[in-house]
Design a binder for these strands. Structure first.
Lengths: 235, 235
DNA sequence: CAATGTGAACAGTTTCACAGCT
DNA sequence: AGCTGTGAAACTGTTCACATTG
């Protein structure tokens, strides 16, 4: 018997993280007048082996032509489809400090596909002020005016406030959280959390600098981890 | 024959990225009056299995006591030693836009162990201005006044300027680069590059949101990749 | 007896090598 | 001839289970 729903075998996470890089490169090549790309070219430009490129791309279907390479257009479109482009994701940023403001204003972070629908902060000094044309709210205010659920929550706040904010976001419907706070979040397993811990990035570099061991270099370096536990530190 | 220099077997990169998390947790527990931690506790609080904690910690030596767990103090110290604390790393930030400024001002990014020794930008509007008590310079100016080599370069600038800045940093002695620009860098293999690509973080989350496949959640999520290639896109 | 440390089994990725198109 | 697509091998990291130790 077969599955009722068309089900692709899940794409490995390292592959998922590389697809946008290939996409970026293909887009750039298109802009420069190329129409096709070989796995060799892609590999060089992306800093990975050609074999890896082919394995990666084969997971999203046969987009290449033997003998001549990949059609750049088809590649961009194929990756876009796989990554969930076309849809628009409702994003809320919690924590309008230095980092939060920087993300809001950094071109390329919130591109098309991402719709900033809320800005939350707990500081009375910030609530009510306008940032990038959007009024900063408390979670209560946000909950009141939210009609549709949030998709993605971004945490740019101090560690001690991260868990509470995550809980609130989940209450607003968020399925995904991008956490910049140096704290591990306890969330139900269906919630996907990605961690970007800036101080850990520096520490990893220091370690290798000192040990003179270059390592092999991985993928996305965020600290992403799973639903943690329920051990409460004593007061 | 044996190596002249004491050489530990290299610690797996995922482990390296988790050690600072354990350290943070142990520090927190210490502050709360605990003196020991079990791998179970650490696992819960860090969102990983107890077995993984033990494997990770065993790579830096036998710090635990069977029957009672790890001494929190010894743990913090042992991890610090492994991560290269004690030394001070000379950091230069290239790109004093939104993100660069945010990093400079974000507590926890440049903690002890990291000494901000230079701020570089190419914009004439910024060069010469003061940011966080430090004057923004061009690479030329920086090269002139730099006596000791740079250790770590941080790139918070547009993609098109990333490769040039990386080359300059390497010229100033940098062995490690933390790259926030959405660009793959071509650097000699002894240079360690870590990538933090914010737009990719969001895209990975979107992918899983749409495919309803929660994935397994990895480690640090940066796009870190290796010395790329030499294929130059036509003009 | 509780909790570490670790060899061995397992799982997930990457690399290899080559068959198969164009 | 050139380049993709892919099984199979190699490798790296995780999980398991248990002997070991305080």
């Amino acid at each position: 018997m077969m599955d009722r729903i068309t089900r692709r075998k899940p794409i490995p996470e390292p592959t998922i993280a590389r697809l946008p890089i290939y996409q970026r490169i293909a887009t750039e090549l298109l802009r420069n007048g190329h129409t096709t790309v070989s796995s060799d070219q892609l590999g060089h430009l992306a800093g990975v082996t050609a074999a890896k490129v082919r394995k990666d791309l084969s997971t999203i279907g046969s987009l290449g032509t033997r003998g001549s390479g990949y059609d750049a257009d088809a590649l961009v479109a194929g990756i876009a489809a796989t990554m969930g482009a076309g849809e628009t994701w409702r994003v809320v940023i919690v924590g309008v400090g230095n980092l939060g403001r920087a993300l809001i204003n950094t071109r390329g972070f919130l591109s098309h596909s991402y719709d900033l629908v809320g800005l939350v902060d707990s500081s009375p000094d910030l609530v009510g002020t306008e940032v990038a044309g959007m009024s900063v709210a408390t979670f209560e205010q946000l909950a009141d005016r939210m009609e549709e659920p949030v998709d993605i929550g971004v945490l740019t706040l101090p560690a001690h406030a991260a868990q509470g904010a995550a809980d609130q976001l989940i209450g607003l419907g968020a399925h995904s959280i991008l956490n910049f706070a140096p704290a591990v979040l306890a969330c139900p397993p269906q919630i996907r959390v990605r961690y970007v811990d800036l101080s850990i990035e520096l520490q990893v570099l220091s370690h290798y600098a000192r040990s003179a061991d270059t390592g092999r270099g991985g993928l996305l370096s965020s600290v992403g981890i799973q639903p943690p536990g329920v051990f409460d530190p004593p007061d």
